[in-house]
Amino acid sequence: MNRVPVTAAIALGDDALVLAQRLGEWAGHAPVLEEDVALANIALDLLGQARTLLSMAGDEDQHAYLREEREFRNVQLVEQPNGDFAHTIARQLYFATYQQLMYSELATAQSELEQGGLAALAAKAVKEVAYHRDHAVQWTLRLGDGTPESHERMQRALDALWRYTGELFQPMEGLPVDLPALREPWLAAIGEVVARATLTMPDGPDRTPWAAGAGRQGVHTESFGRMLAEMQHLHRAHPGASW
C-alpha cells in the first residue's frame, strides 16, 4: 500500500470540515425553508469528504475535536463568517469552483500518491461539488441581476472575500495537482459568472501581504476561534459522547 499524503489529506479535510460547520450555522436561520435544507445538504456532502480525508490521516474525531486553532490547515476563505446570504453565496462560488477544478485534476492524477485513496475520494466528491457550484452560480445570477439592493450586496460580498482567494492556489505538499495552474481556469470560470450576473470582478489584491497563505500555516482569522469553540465544546466537555 502506498503512503497517504497526510499533509494534503489534512489540508483538504480541514477545508471541508470548517466550511461544513459554517454552512451548518444556517440551519434554522436561512432566508427560506427550502434554502435551509439546500445549505444543510451541501454541508453534509462536505462533512462526508472531511471524514474520509481526516480518517486517512488518523483518527477523525481526534483531528476534528481535539486540535487547537493553530493546528488547523484550512484556507482562511472557508472560515469567514456567513455574513449575509450574499456573503455565503460568494464564499460558495469561490470555493466550490476551486474544489471542482482541484478534484477533477485529482481524480485523474497518475502519481503514486493517487493510490492513497485521494483519487477515489476525488472521483466521488467532484460530482458533489459540481452541484455546490451550480447552487452558488444560480444564486449569484439572481442576486447580481436582481434588485438594486441584492446587486449591491452581492458585489460587496464578492469584493470582501476576494482577498482570501489567492491562498487557494498555493502549491501543496503531497497533492498531485498543480494548484497554481488552476488559477487561470478559476478566474475564467468566476469571471464568466460575474459578467452574466451583471457584476464586476473585484480588482483588489487577492491576498493580504501579512496573511498570504496563512491558513495553510495554521494562522487563522479572528472569528475562527469562536467557531472552533462551538464545534468542539461538546466533545471536550463529554469526551467520546455519542447518541
Binding site: V32, L33, E34, E35, V37, A38, N41, D134, H135, Q138, R142
Partner: peptide, 20 residues
C-alpha cells in the same frame, strides 16, 4: 410542493427536498 422564485430554482430545491 415548495416555494421557489422560478422554475430553475424550483427544480434544484426539489432535488434537495425530495431526492436527498
Amino acid at each position: 410542493s415548495l416555494h421557489a422564485p422560478d422554475a430553475t430554482m424550483a427544480l434544484r430545491q426539489a432535488r434537495d427536498l425530495y431526492t436527498r
